[in-house]
Structures are given as structure tokens and as C-alpha cells.
Amino acid sequence: MAEAARRTLPTYPAPGAHVVIVEGRFYDDLNDMLIAGARRMLEAAGASVEIFTVPGALEIPVAIEIIRRQAAEGRRRADAFVALGVVIRGETTHYEIVSNESARALVALATLEALALGNGILTVEDFEQAEARANPAKGDKGGDAARAALALLALRRGEAA
């Protein structure tokens, strides 16, 4: 079966924006690819990038909330967020808990706080699927998550239609 062509999505310039990437680092090579894709997209938009690392996907929403509060207090800058990580199905139900709860928490946080947040936490069956999605030359889900954060930032600023 032929692979479908990807849509051409708009990109949003964000000169001067400061975007915080929070990564749940569990698979070094995969995370490095996600970060490379996100960083490339954000820097091309003119944004500065800061990266925070936490142990896994469940800690990402907590870290984002901590950073958001610090920004609200004027102790840190954060115009938008990108969540990156990889959850690969294993032999137990832990996969479902981590993938469902991290996604639920990110959506709740983003909607309650009106955050410009792109979710790039991959939830996959195996390493091959993860590599295909993380690799900037293939799936570029890190770049996609950064693009989503930039789109929401533009919308929040009133710059998107």
C-alpha cells in the first residue's frame, strides 16, 4: 500500500519567543532525534530554546506546571512549551498508564492554563515505530510538536487566523 503524502502545514514565525522543551529522557537516541527536530523548527521560527530533562513521560506535565508557575512569578521566561518523550509498549499495563495519564495531564494543563503546548510524546508498539517517528528525516514528530506549540502561541497572541 502506498504511503499517503503529508499535508503541508503552515509555520508560524516567533521572533523573540522563548520556548521551553521538557523531555522525559528514557531512550537517549530517540530523545536526541525528537529534540533535534523540535529545535530546528523553533530556531527557524526565530524562537530561543531552553531544555529541561525529567526521568520520564509522567514527570513532563509536572515539570511544565513548575516552569509555568516560575514564569508567572517572573523568575523564568516561557512563551510556549513542547513536551517530548517516548513510551514503548512492554509486557505490562504500565504502558497504558504512562501514555494515557501523561496525555490527560498535558491536555488538562494546556486547556486550564491556555498554554501554547505541543505534545510530542510518542506512544508506540516497538523501537522501530519510535525511530521512524522521532527521526527528523522521517516522521519528525519533534518538529511537529514544536510547530503545534508555535501555532498555539500565534493564536494566543492574536497572530493566527
Rank of each mutant, 00 (worst) to 15 (best):
residue 1 M to I: 10
residue 2 A to G: 08
residue 3 E to T: 11
residue 4 A to F: 06
residue 4 A to V: 12
residue 5 A to W: 05
residue 5 A to P: 05
residue 6 R to C: 07
residue 6 R to N: 03
residue 8 T to Q: 14
residue 14 A to T: 02
residue 17 A to D: 13
residue 18 H to Q: 15
residue 19 V to S: 02
residue 20 V to P: 08
residue 23 E to S: 15
residue 27 Y to T: 07
residue 29 D to Y: 10
residue 29 D to K: 13
residue 32 D to G: 12
residue 33 M to P: 02
residue 34 L to N: 03
residue 34 L to H: 06
residue 35 I to Y: 10
residue 36 A to V: 11
residue 39 R to Y: 08
residue 39 R to G: 10
residue 39 R to N: 13
residue 40 R to D: 14
residue 40 R to F: 09
residue 41 M to F: 09
residue 41 M to C: 15
residue 46 G to S: 10
residue 46 G to L: 10
residue 50 E to Q: 14
residue 50 E to V: 15
residue 52 F to I: 11
residue 55 P to L: 13
residue 57 A to Q: 07
residue 58 L to V: 08
residue 62 V to A: 09
residue 63 A to I: 07
residue 67 I to K: 00
residue 68 R to D: 15
residue 73 E to P: 02
residue 76 R to E: 11
residue 78 A to C: 10
residue 78 A to Y: 01
residue 82 V to L: 04
residue 83 A to E: 06
residue 83 A to H: 01
residue 86 V to S: 02
residue 86 V to G: 07
residue 87 V to P: 03
residue 87 V to N: 06
residue 88 I to V: 15
residue 88 I to G: 01
residue 88 I to R: 06
residue 91 E to K: 05
residue 93 T to C: 05
residue 94 H to N: 12
residue 94 H to L: 12
residue 95 Y to G: 11
residue 96 E to L: 14
residue 97 I to E: 04
residue 97 I to D: 04
residue 101 E to C: 06
residue 106 L to F: 03
residue 107 V to G: 00
residue 108 A to F: 05
residue 109 L to R: 00
residue 112 L to Y: 09
residue 112 L to F: 09
residue 116 A to P: 01
residue 116 A to V: 02
residue 116 A to E: 03
residue 116 A to H: 01
residue 120 G to M: 04
residue 122 L to R: 01
residue 122 L to Y: 02
residue 123 T to G: 11
residue 124 V to R: 05
residue 124 V to K: 00
residue 126 D to L: 03
residue 126 D to F: 05
residue 127 F to R: 13
residue 128 E to A: 15
residue 130 A to N: 08
residue 131 E to I: 05
residue 131 E to S: 14
residue 132 A to D: 12
residue 132 A to Q: 13
residue 132 A to H: 11
residue 136 P to H: 09
residue 138 K to P: 07
residue 138 K to Y: 11
residue 140 D to G: 12
residue 140 D to L: 03
residue 140 D to F: 11
residue 141 K to Y: 12
residue 142 G to P: 11
residue 143 G to L: 00
residue 143 G to A: 13
residue 147 R to P: 03
residue 148 A to N: 07
residue 150 L to V: 00
residue 151 A to W: 04
residue 154 A to P: 00
residue 154 A to E: 00
residue 156 R to H: 00
residue 157 R to Y: 10
residue 157 R to S: 01
residue 158 G to L: 04
residue 158 G to F: 04
residue 159 E to T: 00
residue 160 A to H: 08
residue 161 A to H: 07
